[in-house]
Nucleic acid binder design. Sequence first.
DNA 1: GTGTCGGCCGTCTGCCGACAA
DNA 2: TTGTCGGCAGACGGCCGACAC
Lengths: 397, 397
Amino acid sequence: MKLSAVGLNQQSPDAGDKNCLNSELWHACAGPLVSLAAIGSHVVYFPQGHSEQVAVSTNKEVDAQIPNYPSLPPQLICQLHNVTMHADLETDEVYAQMTLQPLSTQEQKEISFLPADLGTPSKQPTNYFCKNLTASDTSTHGGFSVPRRAAEKVFPPLDFSLQPPAQELIARDLHNNEWKFRHIFRGQPKRHLLTTGWSVFVSAKRLIAGDSVLFIWNEKNQLLLGIRRANRPQTVMPSSVLSSDSMHLGILAAAAHAAATNSRFTIFYNPRASPSEFVIPLAKYVKAVYHTRVSVGMRFRMLFETEESSVRRYMGTITGIGDLDLARWPNSHWRSVKVGWDESASGERQLRVSLWEIEPLTTFPMYPSPFSLRLKRPWPSGLPSFSGMKLDEMGLN
Amino acid sequence: MKLSAVGLNQQSPDAGDKNCLNSELWHACAGPLVSLAAIGSHVVYFPQGHSEQVAVSTNKEVDAQIPNYPSLPPQLICQLHNVTMHADLETDEVYAQMTLQPLSTQEQKEISFLPADLGTPSKQPTNYFCKNLTASDTSTHGGFSVPRRAAEKVFPPLDFSLQPPAQELIARDLHNNEWKFRHIFRGQPKRHLLTTGWSVFVSAKRLIAGDSVLFIWNEKNQLLLGIRRANRPQTVMPSSVLSSDSMHLGILAAAAHAAATNSRFTIFYNPRASPSEFVIPLAKYVKAVYHTRVSVGMRFRMLFETEESSVRRYMGTITGIGDLDLARWPNSHWRSVKVGWDESASGERQLRVSLWEIEPLTTFPMYPSPFSLRLKRPWPSGLPSFSGMKLDEMGLN
DNA sequence: GTGTCGGCCGTCTGCCGACAA
DNA sequence: TTGTCGGCAGACGGCCGACAC
């Protein structure tokens, strides 16, 4: 297998190559829950989930007029040939481009799992902080107030013998642009501030109160700088290029054609716009769908991102199991689980989730499973199984 | 037939309805060569031309991997059910949304032409001016220098007894937003200037030197204000929503599905991005393809837009006639004419044009044509003809 | 006729500590 | 600990006629 140099591996910040952007910063901007499957690995692609991303982006639901593609199954097992990380030049919105190739029936039979196939959760950088911008931070009247712990952890140490202690910080964004800031420790009581250079950044990125900035101090002693915009309602523009119907059709046609000819196709995954990931590591899918028992009434946990860019678990109960769209996507595992959430302020959370998104709480040990651990076990009549890995390595946390 | 209230007719500037924008201003921004077919009329839709628009917008050519749709002809005869004019909220870029319905074979046989079917050329407003912005116009140092004739023709007269003569102008843009300017006549020599309010407009619209502004004084004594951005290379962003392959496929799939089921589909036409119009009044198409004799070596004229938003003719010679894309779109009339241009500085102009875009110069009278002028003449075995109109009414100028 | 400039004034940017939550 | 404010100095916005092409 040929691995592209541009991909999940750490990139050196080479200004010449625009495909080459910092993986660490990309993941920090994408959020702690976003993980990209490894290049070369096997994944499951859900056209239905891809369609949902487009529906959110265009703010238009799928039209009932759109024809079915009876030949297109609700999930395609693919090899992930390439993943490249990108950021919109205008908005800095992060997205990933993936090249997928549906596997032939024969290839599906020959699959063997490797531990890496489960998909490593996105490794968030350790030396970083993320601050929600206040009105004062974005006002023209002043600079940026750096939270004390953040400054001490992430910024290079100041020389406190100077009065006042100050230094110049140089940070690079996703496009490898350089931003200079004066970092000063002053005031009564003393505090860390970014002054000169800050307002240029705010106006260039068009930041407003409520947006977040993100500083990373990486292992190469570089300062990285990303932004995350607040979810502004109706920021999405009705794309004047293609009607939303044609977009949905384009997704289906591209996937159907690729599936019919076992040829490669390209998709974009927009982690902050998409309601859910729709390219799932095959092992994660198989584990959730075939090796986990769920039933109505069962309790579960699910991870969500917090305001401060960390994760927390919410608890819920399974209230039903069944097809989301019986007519168009029968027998799909996409969002097949109806759920209720414990906390009342859960208007934001989905009423339907997919099996691989949740962590069922069982009172009895599920593992070891009844399936054997033999190596290179072929798929028995289309029902996938595991081999080549220890199941207890598959825990998500 | 049901005609939508939102369409080609003059709209009153009703701030409440966002679909309702000023037709006169839209056409002025679109340019003098752009015309939209009448609602309810018959048109020819070229998927190939639509694809070209997407190729330009995404800056990516059609991938050879994209499958053919053998059932999709290179041109679809459709009824144009609806046309609505729009402008991008961010950029003010004008575009039109069209709802098309392919005609069944039976319906095609029953077509009769009406004079209106030829498509009236876009009626540009009379009281308007368009100025290319200079460095001084867009600089923060000063205001906008109004060309003298333009001010006298388009702006309300000043009271020259005042010293200096001045007034407040209120103009509305495509989104019906109000912009106020101080219009003053001062300096030595005397000149018309827009001062207070101008810089707010420039920064809100993000205008730079080279962009154009457009003022219209309409028959309702309203001042309208549009913008036209210079063709900035590579302004187009690689849409992070859908791969360009999927977009091209979406176009084909949508058209093929609509053609197979005689159902409606929706397209967007972006007059300033698209290399050519790809929805052509049926009568114009029939006239050009079936009632005009062209041959290699023949001289012709073709209209182009000038910098100042007026039109001029360029002369050329037909150098060849044949399919642009023999494999994918055989027997298409789209850009079937290879041409050479008289003027050497013609790097901008297409090397291939469609028959309906050019005006062949003949030394002998082409009309009356051998086809009869009978009313309601059905199409003879797929070869279209004219009826219900006088051919000399079909001249394009 | 109109693009650009120097001059000049007024507003706003942006750095500071004060203060309170 | 940090969000917001008043105070203040300097930069820039923005209106003017001069001048040249």
